[in-house]
Design a binder for these strands. Structure first.
Lengths: 338, 338
DNA sequence: GTGAAAGCGCTAACAC
DNA sequence: GTGTTAGCGCTTTCAC
């Protein structure tokens, strides 16, 4: 470890020019002669110079960095959305700073705080833990786009979402077409995504004249939550479960099989999200698939656009899901046995 | 969006003190009178003051931020390691900056570059894509600890690893104890983890006098890689697969079942990692489980220690895995039929 | 205890 | 084209 990192000044003196020329050259300005540019680039190269983002951001008053907050790194659905975000963001020469981890709103707010201290220029929220007040506060301070959350309408905040109500309907329609009537919804708990999906479920059940059978068991968006909810929901002797997300559905299947039922022989299970994992033959989960990478790409695009035009009205994008039929749903079994 | 964020100067004038006092007070110095401290804290509060990390890092020449590079966000194994990292890092008042995404060494090097520009004080590498030259370069510039990679010994670089050779042996011992002989290793490809695990496999096969049956098919560390490798390996008519990691094992199971075989009736499958997902009844994967969170915690600890004592000799920690028997391994079936 | 002053490494006018 | 000059918001001596 040498004395200390070389600065733009070291590069300047080595190249025999002033530090401003170095700055210009390194930022790709066209008002630098080729000769100088080359000398500067060589000097930087030889010195192993690396710009100091802190200084740059301080001076330029922009960091070219976007913050991303993610609900839960354990659920691969976020990695798939992030792929889309990254692709788009990189193309525009921005960097991305990722945080995750806080389980409650306050911790999550603290995570965003960290992001803000790093002078991020915009924020992508792939989470829904923030309270409305917090969200308003954040969105008021920094260009923000939410992914997967459309419950709170804030003037200049963009939202990109899947049509979760439609998705819920798609799931129910599929199940009903297979002859199911006692369809229980294992909801993902108290958050906008889950609410919408549950609403779609309710609407579709009603549309099929099945309101009497409609039954929602509230759980969460993790595997264990799905497991528990399914266990509890078994008492309604359902022939099918519509689970709020794929990971939860995997948990639900575990509970169903543990209780001695066959999937889909006795009970069908349909998930939501369309994570790659669900496509594995060993999982083979029927699901309502969102265009995950597209969701991420769109979010990044909207945010980048807003950085250009901060005042433009909010965009509310909605993408559509698609039913992917695999092995966990099948014809209704009128009297499943344990 | 108001004029512009309040700075330490705004806080100072509102509290009627100088900016240096504010700085002192906010960093918890004891040479500030209680009266001043309170006025300052109130002012900061009222203004919604948030420190500018860029300025702070520039002035203090330290960022209190650690960089973390992760191989693949799609594999939950990294989320579980990260949990351990985060827990430890937060306790010490440090922040963590996470990057991931580059598929090849150069891109990954670029990711680290980004991290360095943000003046991270230390680096946790949960990846193994970097070439030896790159790793030396990086480790020479910044305190670095690798997790999950112990192939390159660099003077002041700490390493925390699982004993993957032992893990490989554990897997084989388990399979052999079930009567398996034609055990094929679906390796994770050309990287240190996979090499060690494969070596453990080879050693154990030899120890059991099964060297003639030893067979390694090279794949990768993703579900699809496991799937493909298994498909290919079926030609050796194995009675068991030892797969380099859990996600790969899930892919392998898919291939096995797709070919009409039963797991574990015809072919047993054992994975490696011990991700939570593997414990789901619907997956129910027998595996060699690493203490994931502990791995992360240890890495963070070592790095934090090194920041204190930059020159101390490198620590090479090794943790042990544990066999977790679940439903994908069973007694050998002498003649599996499709 | 408290304030003044000198930078940290960089960008962005502005002169030349 | 190129150099000079002010800061960006903060920490940190060093006087008082």
């Amino acid at each position: 470890m040498s004395a200390s990192r070389p600065t733009i000044l070291d590069v300047a003196s080595r190249a025999g020019v002033s530090k401003s020329l170095v700055s210009l050259a390194l930022s790709g300005s066209d008002k630098v002669s080729d000769a100088s540019r080359q000398r500067i680039e060589r000097a930087a190269q030889e010195l192993g110079y690396r710009p100091n983002a802190a200084a740059r951001s301080l001076a330029a008053k922009k960091s070219r960095t976007l913050g991303v907050l993610v609900l839960d790194l354990h659920n691969p659905v976020f990695a798939e959305i992030l792929d889309g975000v990254q692709t788009e963001v990189r193309q525009h020469g921005f960097t991305t700073m990722l945080v995750s981890g806080g389980d409650d709103p306050a911790l999550e707010r603290a995570d965003i705080d960290t992001l803000q201290q790093f002078q991020i220029e915009g924020l992508i929220l792939i989470s829904h833990r923030l309270t409305e007040a917090m969200l308003r506060e954040v969105a008021g301070e920094i260009p923000t786009v939410t992914v997967t959350r459309d419950d709170i309408d804030i003037p200049r905040m963009d939202m990109v979402c899947n049509d979760d109500v439609e998705g819920g309907r798609i799931a129910v329609d599929h199940l009903v077409s297979l002859g199911h009537r006692r369809i229980v919804c294992l909801s993902g708990g108290d958050n906008p995504v889950s609410h919408s999906r549950a609403r779609g479920y309710l609407e579709a059940m009603a549309a099929h004249g099945l309101s009497d059978h409609a039954q929602i068991v509230s759980g969460g968006l993790t595997d264990t939550a799905g497991y528990r909810a399914a266990k509890e929901a078994l008492e309604f002797s359902p022939t099918a479960f519509f689970v709020a997300n794929d990971i939860g559905a995997m948990g639900a299947i575990a509970a169903v099989e543990e209780a001695g039922f066959d999937v889909p022989g006795d009970i069908s299970v349909i998930g939501y999200d369309g994570i790659r994992l669900a496509g594995l033959r060993s999982v083979n989960l029927t699901t309502v698939a969102q265009p995950l990478a597209e969701l991420g790409r769109l979010a990044a695009t909207r945010l980048l656009e807003r950085l250009e035009k901060p005042a433009r009205p909010a965009h509310h994008d909605q993408v559509s899901s698609q039913l992917v039929v695999r092995g966990t749903t099948g014809p209704a079994n009128p009297s499943p046995t344990a």
